[in-house]
Design a protein around this nucleic acid. Structure first.
Lengths: 344, 344
DNA sequence: GTGAAAGCGCTAACAC
DNA sequence: GTGTTAGCGCTTTCAC
């Protein structure tokens, strides 16, 4: 495929520079720049000759050089623990949408585990890029650790379920929502409510705090919470265990786990919601399609992402105040929760 | 909060440069560079003074300038239609993983619709960044359009379900898999197999082609395919329609649609799989948990993403040949499909 | 070890 | 309109 003496496109020696284009077009470097940016008028003859040279050399301007001379990068980084879990994916989508409509591009940095060296490396790779700000998804321990690595001076906002201090953040107030769910279940006549947690970002997560608070206020029994992994299947065994323990109401950390728990319950011969009420969290796109349709809490992750970017936008504009944008998730009543069974 | 005469950190005038650090530390600019990069030995005294100055000014080196002087960017862009749909999210995750382990960062560009102006703008924003290559998710019309906008000379690979020519690509051979699914259903005794499509990237998609081919080979009736949207709920109405039409076997474009179709079927009084067999596509994380557990086709999207990055890696290294990496999705037998009902 | 000088590829300012 | 001259912030020779 290698053709004659190096000229026409694709001579993988060194990428063509603006000087090469200028030389080939027989004009000066700034003239090439002018046709590139459209900043000033160029005669048709020269413009065409420049365009021809650009095409012939398949020249692309160096973004790095452009950026160097003209101001700030229009890139924000998103630091996240996993890109494909529902809430994460939606939050990223929200950030990306808001960023794009503001002319920014989004760079993704995934921090898979809490290993210090790995976090350092991932953060260094990101911070080594020209970025104007960072959004960190602080839903898990990686997020918390990553946040600690952001150099001061770089605009940053955290997306979180639990309010914190010191950083700007967009939060979904899980604590209040969890309280509300638990109150709802208690109001249905259940003696207490069991809780299946998803992996928390710190020792305590908002959902667990809210659940416990509601139980305490109602002077109900506070059962030991059960721990699920992120895998929906981990809910199945816990559902079976809950069936044997005689639970009548279960509040799950997310919808996928709730689906697993229901499966485990049903496998043990329980009916949902007649024998056991189950409620999820998030309002996953499949929650309404499940049998029975899941009663859950709608979390607007994409909205949180958008609000997060807006906060970041202010920070990038120079606002040093750590702002907070909080929203309360909404209870979505469907069919997986109902009155406590009369017997017992 | 604004303190005395501008010095210490956070004086939002103009970001500190390496020269500011050098001045404050009382050393030359190259010396600061040396402590930054560790490229050469610096006396402990100067090193410490430089580090102090860096901290005091909360100085961060300009990534753009660094990049300009020293070679290629370690960033690849991923162009995608939606970041939160299962297959897309997984594919992105795969690309990111492979990229990260190779020292690259990933930039995301979302192209939401086929509006020319919007695509141009999104692509321009991306191509204006310093990137070493592009992976485009060519699962939808946006992807196809975006691919057409990539300037020649920039390394690119497409992730796709249907083999194409001219570009390097990683594909999941849907056509073969769909054929296999259809054959399987036919082998179970069904007279024909109905098909519910998800929005295709072109006029034809691999799943539809494979399904039709298998039907034709078996000399079975070829019913008109039904079109679903990406929303799982769109499957519900189609399921009801299929129930009325007396379908006994349905092949769905993805698992989420299959879940909707099953719901529609059940709402109409059909049992799955006793009356109607339904099979999905993708092996969504919830497919095995569904009632009944979904018979489907496992598509390794993350693996495709990884293979895509490897291809890109070769292209970035100078390989001009448009390579192809194809993988065959695997049939996963669960419970949503069974023998054709005896009557009729 | 350390500083002075040069230059990465581009755009902005200033002549002509 | 167009070319010449200066940098953008950094790393890299190359002397000392």
């Amino acid at each position: 495929m290698t053709s004659a003496a190096g000229s026409d496109h694709a001579g993988p020696g060194r990428p063509p520079t603006i000087a090469d284009v200028a030389a080939r077009a027989g004009v000066s470097v700034p003239t090439v720049s002018r046709v590139l940016t459209g900043a000033a008028k160029v005669s048709t003859a020269k413009r065409e000759s420049v365009e021809a040279a650009i095409a012939a050399l398949s020249y692309r301007p160096s973004a790095a050089a452009r950026m160097l001379v003209s101001g700030q990068p229009r890139v924000v980084a998103v630091v996240t623990g996993d890109t494909s879990r529902y809430g994460y994916a939606e939050a990223i989508r929200g950030v990306e949408e808001a960023a794009r409509s503001d002319g920014y591009t989004v760079m993704i940095t995934v921090v898979e585990n809490t290993d210090d060296a790995e976090i350092d490396q991932a953060m260094a790779a990101t911070l080594g890029q020209p970025i104007a700000g960072v959004v960190v998804l602080k839903f898990d321990p990686q997020g918390v650790a990553a946040l600690a690595r952001i150099p001061s001076g770089l605009p940053v906002v955290a997306l979180s379920g639990l309010r914190d201090t010191g950083v700007a953040q967009a939060v979904l107030d899980e604590t209040r929502a969890a309280e509300e769910v638990t109150d709802y279940l208690l109001g249905l006549g259940h003696a207490t409510v069991h809780h299946v947690r998803v992996p928390p970002s710190r020792r305590q997560d908002g959902r667990t705090i809210g659940w416990r608070r509601a139980l305490r206020r109602a002077a109900a029994d506070i059962p030991e919470p059960l721990d699920a992994s992120w895998d929906p299947r981990s809910g199945v065994a816990l559902g079976a265990q809950l069936a044997r323990d005689g639970a009548t109401a279960v509040f799950c950390g997310n919808d996928e786990i709730a689906m697993g728990v229901i499966r485990g319950l049903v496998d043990e011969g329980k009916r949902v919601p007649e024998d056991v009420s189950v409620v999820g969290f998030d309002d996953h796109p499949l929650a309404g399609l499940w049998a029975p349709p899941l009663t859950t809490v709608r979390q607007d992750f994409a909205g949180m992402g958008r609000r997060g970017f807006e906060l970041l936008s202010r920070a990038m504009a120079g606002d040093r105040e750590p702002r907070l944008s909080s929203e309360r998730p909404q209870l979505v009543l469907r069919a997986s929760a109902g009155p406590a069974p009369a017997d017992r």
